[in-house]
Design a protein around this nucleic acid. Structure first.
Lengths: 246, 246
DNA sequence: CGAACTTTTGACAAGCATCAACACGTGTGG
DNA sequence: CCACACGTGTTGATGCTTGTCAAAAGTTCG
């Protein structure tokens, strides 16, 4: 249990809330066990009772739910540092799956220890609370995205969100990004078929908004992509946090 | 400021968390002003800074966001007792609109007083926290609904959620319910056009799953409607609350 | 080097949108 | 009290967006 294990998560939480040195130390001291996970199967499953809550250390992950007919809908994607199932943990039973997009390391934190820490340290409670509220805002935007935008716009929107969040996490190389999602997964996130995703990506490439490499994507014209994606970053609440009310 | 103003909300919160007599009294004593609102325009608008948080006393409401192209997507609907914009209040700036579906009364509670109360009384904090988590679960289910189900299934699913929540609030007359949504609004909630909503309702009526009256709906066969709507009530977390961890 | 996955392409079908018109009920003002 | 406007629900004709099916080309990895 290295003390650095939870550092990516700490960094992310401190983007919104100022922690004291004690807050930081207490957070890093949380009992957590690390596990290297691959993409083969969900590591949290709908219906599972929850004893832990999980934080991504390295690699990417997504949450999803499936219909009775077997169609999968991706609900959100996650970057290193993200706490991926605080909601599941707190509600006691998972209502969706969580799975890796790429091989990576995950910290399993005792849910009870997390609860206690939050109870003792308001700054930490506040930071976690804000993260779940922003998650909620992203869910709402995704409802709009799949409900009211056409295929091309949906994809452009998703790519914009991805770029903005990768930038915030410092995971970009200039305008180029690792792209952990296959076209099938892009379809599962936008409510489209992989075939149609492929065609819409061609359309975006044809208009010189993006270009794609092997497992990478380059945003050639962010401004135009935001217009094409009807994208406004306000729903990511970049300003929410200290300075704002509880 | 009648002391009974917040009673519907108190009743709803107490469905999940057991309050002490002091909790109850303190909650009902929250400074709130009542306002009768009509359906003409949103009473909370995207971008508004938030000083209050609102609880429905009577009548129905919905939250929505609009695309740049002007299309409206309904994000959730709300029954008497629901706190409709805790998320907006806590993030400091509204990221979506809230509007009445029917004329009704709304309590505007001081956000700071609400924060203080939650800070002093863990049971109340926990109840509010759970409500926002369940809201989040509903958002996730709606993403699945608009992303991966066909028009008939989407509508049936929405009607099931409506029926279950109306039942939980005791607002049903046997299997008959007031239906506060027009067909256009049903379309905005399901990502469909009003014309297609009309046709799908005909299909559901034709199969004797529902029947509709003027501003009412009767669930003729709840079981079959749940099958048609791929509906599983687990996402509403009917069991979450006391007995479950924080 | 071969198996499995991912991306790409093409032909075709279907679901849902669009447009337009009409029916119906309700409230309102002349 | 009736005429009228308005919102809502209903119907039909038509077309576009997206899905479906199938197959080939490219890629990754043991």
């Amino acid at each position: 249990m290295t003390p650095e294990l939870l550092e990516p998560t700490l960094r992310k939480l401190e983007r919104r809330v100022r922690f004291s040195a004690e807050d930081r130390a207490a957070f890093l001291a949380l009992p957590a066990r690390e596990q290297v996970l691959d993409t083969a199967r969900p590591f949290i499953r709908e219906g599972d009772p929850s004893r832990h809550c999980c934080a991504l250390i390295t690699g990417f992950a997504y949450r999803s739910r499936s219909t009775g007919g077997g169609a999968r809908q991706i609900l959100s994607f996650h970057l290193p540092g993200d706490v991926v199932d605080l909601q599941n943990a707190l509600l006691g039973v998972a209502d969706h799956d969580v799975q890796m997009l790429t091989r990576g390391r995950v910290a399993f934190i005792s849910r009870d220890a997390m609860s206690e820490l939050a109870f003792e340290r308001p700054a930490i409670a506040r930071a976690l609370w804000l993260e779940t509220l922003v998650d909620g805002s992203i869910f709402r935007e995704w409802i709009v995205n799949v409900g009211r935008r056409n295929a091309r716009t949906r994809l452009a929107h998703l790519l914009c969100e991805f770029a903005v969040r990768m930038n915030a996490a410092g995971l970009n190389r200039d305008r180029q990004y690792d792209m952990p999602l296959t076209q099938e997964q892009l379809g599962d996130a936008t409510g489209l078929t992989p075939v149609h995703v492929n065609r819409m990506l061609q359309s975006l490439r044809g208009d010189a908004l993006i270009s794609t490499g092997r497992r990478t994507i380059t945003i050639e014209d962010l401004n135009a992509l935001q217009v094409a994606g009807d994208f406004n970053h306000a729903y990511l609440h970049p300003e929410a946090g200290d300075g704002q009310p509880l």
